[in-house]
Amino acid sequence: ARTKGEIIGIELQERLADMAQRSIALNGLEEQITIENENVIGIAKKIGYELYDTVTCNPPYFPANDASARNKSEYYTIARHEVELTLDQAVKSASELLKQGGKAAFVHRPGRLLDIITSMRQYRLEPKRIRFVYP
């Protein structure tokens, strides 16, 4: 409702991509929003390098290591743990997609703040604003 711009959503999991597509149709937004059932890793090769004003991302929150308590559901594990996409890969992809001066927004946990900032600086994104949200 706040923009007339074209929106492209990237979703790795086919089931969730289908759910998003149905939601778009139910809201009559097919002309504005498309969903690609793809991996974020290397997505710029498919949809274009440095073409986008804004990239938003909700990457998996938890590193995929032996200490992390993974959900028994494969869907939740992929969404919450870095088994298919790491924070660095998400930030790198965002950097590849953004125009010079573009904006990136990441939804993440405060416990990973230093990891986020470190990764952003590595891939030429300079954090300007941080908003903490409390439940």
Rank of each mutant, 00 (worst) to 15 (best):
110 P>E: 09
128 K>T: 05
126 E>R: 09
40 V>P: 05
54 T>G: 03
43 I>F: 13
66 D>E: 14
5 G>N: 14
2 R>Q: 14
123 Y>S: 06
96 E>V: 01
64 A>V: 10
6 E>W: 06
80 R>L: 14
16 L>E: 06
113 L>A: 14
102 G>F: 06
135 P>W: 00
106 F>K: 12
103 K>V: 15
26 L>E: 15
62 F>Y: 13
85 L>P: 00
24 I>S: 11
14 E>P: 03
42 G>Y: 07
11 E>V: 10
42 G>W: 13
27 N>C: 07
110 P>V: 12
93 S>Y: 00
123 Y>M: 02
30 E>A: 15
76 Y>G: 01
135 P>M: 08
27 N>M: 01
105 A>G: 02
15 R>Q: 14
30 E>T: 14
72 K>I: 04
35 I>P: 03
94 A>L: 05
126 E>L: 06
50 E>M: 05
4 K>M: 08
127 P>S: 10
121 R>W: 07
80 R>N: 06
35 I>F: 01
112 R>I: 03
79 A>H: 09
107 V>Y: 15
20 A>N: 10
61 Y>S: 02
132 F>V: 07
15 R>V: 13
20 A>G: 15
65 N>C: 03
53 D>C: 05
53 D>I: 05
129 R>A: 02
51 L>V: 06
116 I>R: 00
47 I>P: 09
47 I>A: 09
54 T>Y: 14
116 I>H: 00
22 R>D: 13
91 V>W: 00
93 S>C: 03
38 E>G: 07
118 T>I: 03
65 N>W: 08
66 D>V: 11
92 K>P: 03
100 Q>M: 05
48 G>W: 11
11 E>P: 12
32 Q>N: 09
118 T>V: 06
2 R>C: 08
7 I>L: 14
111 G>N: 00
87 L>V: 03
11 E>C: 11
93 S>N: 10
133 V>A: 12
7 I>E: 05
17 A>R: 02
69 A>D: 14
133 V>H: 12
41 I>D: 11
69 A>M: 12
66 D>C: 04
1 A>I: 08
131 R>N: 03
134 Y>W: 15
5 G>D: 15
76 Y>C: 06
66 D>H: 13
104 A>V: 04
55 V>M: 01
31 E>C: 00
10 I>C: 10
112 R>D: 05
76 Y>R: 07
77 T>Q: 11
51 L>K: 15
17 A>P: 08
63 P>F: 09
103 K>I: 15
10 I>K: 12
13 Q>C: 01
72 K>F: 04
108 H>L: 08
79 A>M: 15
134 Y>I: 14
116 I>W: 03
115 D>S: 13
105 A>V: 00
68 S>N: 09
75 Y>Q: 08
58 N>L: 08
74 E>Q: 04
124 R>F: 12
13 Q>H: 10
132 F>H: 08
97 L>I: 11
108 H>S: 05
124 R>P: 02
22 R>K: 15
14 E>Y: 05
46 K>N: 11
64 A>W: 05
70 R>F: 01
41 I>W: 08
50 E>S: 14
36 E>Y: 12
11 E>R: 12
76 Y>D: 12
